[in-house]
């Protein structure tokens, strides 16, 4: 192969004035040459810096003294660079290879799924462990206050009955041998119906309607054990953290378009995760009940009755099952949970 002198037209700027000079750039035997419009320079190829490929943009060749050339003849420059043995970073090759782009897309989807499945819950767990006690208290009190203002009314349950229930539950043994330190709060819930919620600081909120629905005290203890399971595993905080992490990432990604939309995926992921948490809390409750000589079937009994009550309230309209409050209660009562408690 003979030494071919390849040439490309270029626009030359010396770096000290904005004057543009039309030149021709050539390379051979490890040296470059630029000539035209009063410019005449040559030197070793290693002293040049060649900008990366970028679609249709002109490429920039920078000289050691800060002068530069803009080359719009991309095909010609490509041949010249190839002939002079110019290498390209692998990142640049990926950016313009269809295969690499498709593979990146696939890898990205897998990474996002894996992150959502494992990394987000793990981070949420770490964050929940690290959350300062004062913050947890404040969050819980704020939530309780918001509930009180929106839907709840003072309980009509006699104080002695409330105290007796609290005493009975605190006297139970926890399966992990830790003390049962919770605060019971009783409220009348009206349309909200029979329900119980755990607030991260250790408050369990029980509605009068739940007490009325329960056949006996053991059923109430079953529900409390379930909520206590949520508290022990910090489900509430973890759920909140998961929502925050997903929301943060989405806000970062959507960013300039709208942060309002960032809340949507967070809400969706909450609904998805809560099912696993319910099962975990059920398992905890079953263990706790058994330790104290109560059959886990007692929890199944009251769950079944809560489910029946819900169906009566909304006989035909499937959509009304997702009324705004159900979002907070996140108790997807299902046949599966009841069977699990009975079977286990």
């Amino acid at each position: 192969m003979s030494e071919i002198l390849r040439e490309v037209p270029a626009a030359y700027y010396d770096g000290s004035s904005s004057r543009c000079r039309a030149v021709r750039l050539s390379a051979a035997a490890g040296r470059f040459r630029v000539h035209g419009e009063g410019v005449e320079r040559e030197g070793a190829l290693e002293t040049l810096r060649v900008s990366e490929r970028l679609g249709s943009a002109p490429r920039v060749i920078t000289f050691a003294d800060g002068a530069h050339c803009e080359v719009s003849d991309l095909a010609g420059l490509g041949l010249l660079l190839e002939a002079s043995g110019h290498g390209e970073s692998c990142v640049v090759r990926w950016q313009f290879s269809m295969q690499a782009i498709l593979l990146s897309l696939l890898a990205l989807v897998l990474l996002i799924l894996a992150g959502h499945e494992w990394l987000v819950p793990w981070m949420a767990r770490q964050a929940a462990e690290q959350t300062p006690r004062a913050l947890v208290e404040r969050l819980s009190n704020d939530t309780l206050k918001a509930f009180d203002e929106a839907v709840l009314k003072p309980s009509r349950l006699p104080a002695p009955r409330q105290e007796a229930l609290a005493r009975r539950f605190s006297a139970l043994q926890s399966p992990d041998a830790r003390p049962v330190a919770i605060r019971l709060e009783f409220r009348s819930a009206g349309a909200l119906g029979a329900n119980a919620f755990a607030l991260p600081s250790g408050i369990i909120l029980v509605t009068d309607e739940l007490i009325a629905l329960a056949g006996d005290e053991e059923e109430i203890l079953g529900v409390l054990a379930h909520e206590f399971g949520h508290l022990q595993a910090k489900h509430g905080l973890r759920l909140m953290m998961e929502g925050s992490i997903v929301g943060l990432v989405t806000a970062w990604y959507v960013g300039d378009v709208s942060t309002v939309l960032a809340g949507l995926p967070a809400a969706l992921s909450r609904a998805r995760y809560s099912r696993a948490f319910e099962r975990e809390a059920d398992d905890f409750a079953a263990r706790m009940l058994r330790v104290n000589g109560i059959s886990p079937a007692r929890l199944a009994d009251i769950l079944e009755r809560m489910e029946a009550g819900r169906e009566r309230k909304a006989p035909d309209d499937g959509a009304s099952e997702s009324s705004p409050m159900d979002y907070f209660s996140s108790h997807p009562l299902s046949v599966e949970r009841i069977q699990r408690l009975r079977g286990g």
């Binding site: 679609g55 249709s56 990926w94 950016q95 313009f96 782009i101 990205l108 990474l111």
Partner: peptide, 21 residues
């Protein structure tokens, strides 16, 4: 401005992947 979305897509997706990794 002569950039095309098609060219930018490759840059963008490789950027995103490497940033996450």
């Amino acid at each position: 401005f002569t950039g095309s979305g098609k060219d930018y897509f490759g840059i963008w997706i490789v950027n995103l992947l490497l940033t996450i990794v």
